[in-house]
Amino acid sequence: MSGGAHLAAKVAGMLLSIGAILFMWHTMPGYVEITAPFVTRGDAGEWVHTRTFGVRVDKSYLSRTLRQTSFGRSEERTTSGVWVIVKVDALAVHEPSMIGAFALQTEDGRRYQHTERVRLSRKVGLLGRELQPEMPVAALLVFEVPEDVVANLMLIAGEREIPHLTSEAHISLRWQSSNPLTSIRDTLDLGS
């Protein structure tokens, strides 16, 4: 090989290497993407099974006030937005597991965690409850969201609040009418 051709081959090799490094730099996923949760998507009414749990959205309700009986006393909880009550069924897949985090996600990506303002009994709540395989349990989830976001909400159920490499189910909520604001109740009794 002549001296000129040898040099051209070296330059081409170097350019190719730099090109490969730049390509990898731009296409390599970041830490957040690498450790992202394993998402399974589905619609309301159908079972959505992740690696560790399955969840099905049964019905969703909207209300301005929640009524709850606690130690024999009736209590009412109001909100500046609207209460979203989601009735779900849940079970474990293969071995006992828990669903540790619930949130509602809006169309623009904002997430609203399960409320801490309402204490649900172990019978109707799902947080901290151990699920068993093939034994679905019915439960209520309660969220507080601004009124203008209720039309497009997605339920996110995950193994843990910090969702690194964990399973997550994403389920779109469905409303009976095209304008869900018309179906907002004044009061909803969590005991009924």
Partner: peptide
């Protein structure tokens, strides 16, 4: 302690 079936599925 768990119950386990032939596929390895467990109940606590």
């Amino acid at each position: 302690v768990y119950l386990e079936d032939s596929t390895g599925q467990r109940w606590s």
